[in-house]
């Protein structure tokens, strides 16, 4: 497959949240405000792209030659956690406002399974470097797009009249389900 088609598919038709169901925790947790969701999406995008490149290099130049590919999950978790920490340090220094509003959800990117999912899928699908880059940027762009759209819908829902038992998370989950149906073309 060409990198361009991989890019388009991973943004829309094979969106990482709505068709692979990865990274749901921050999808629900950090999408209550439009601005928070945008920052969350951008940080996830940065972490996914950086850690995909690093894990790809580590896998193909360290793990494959030494025949230790069974270590990949542990290795990748290690790399992702340090990337998140690194990003947190930079944000704390240069954008303290965002660091404060994101709060706990920023270090929790380390446990965001979208990141580990993308890095492992890069390996499992036998991508070359360009395809890997297209897939990780595309998936993370899809993440940003969906979490932003979802946050705008949720902001709208807050002002609308919803029955009391559905208010809050239940209606958000239903919205996510309907979005997911749209994305796999059942509607």
């Amino acid at each position: 497959m060409s990198p361009i088609s991989i890019f388009v598919t991973s943004v829309l038709a094979q969106n990482i949240i709505l068709t692979k169901f990865l990274g749901i925790c921050p999808f629900i947790g950090a999408s209550n405000k439009e601005k928070n969701a945008f920052h969350m999406g951008l940080s996830v995008m940065l972490v996914i792209t950086l850690s995909s490149i690093i894990t790809y290099v580590i896998y193909h130049f360290v793990l494959v030659p030494t025949n230790t590919t069974y270590l990949r999950t542990t290795m990748f978790v290690l790399v992702i956690a340090s990337m998140v920490q690194l990003m947190e340090l930079f944000l704390k220094k240069y954008l303290p406002g965002i660091h404060k509003t994101m709060g706990l959800y920023l270090p929790l990117i380390a446990t965001n399974c979208a990141v580990l999912g993308v890095t492992l899928l890069n390996i499992n699908n036998d991508f070359n470097f360009l395809q890997m880059l297209a897939f990780s940027v595309g998936s993370s762009l899809g993440y940003l797009l969906i979490i932003y759209i979802f946050a705008t819908i949720r902001e709208r829902l807050e002002t609308s009249d919803i029955s009391k038992s559905f208010d809050g998370i239940p209606i958000a989950l239903l919205t996510a389900a309907i979005m997911s149906l749209v994305f796999v073309r059942y509607l």
């Binding site: 230790t68 790399v79 690194l86």
Partner: peptide, 18 residues
């Protein structure tokens, strides 16, 4: 055995960077 060395080395490098 070599896996342990690789993991330790990577952990050292990453923690040093941090």
């Amino acid at each position: 055995m070599i896996g342990i060395f690789i993991l330790t080395a990577l952990a050292f490098v990453l923690s040093f960077v941090l």
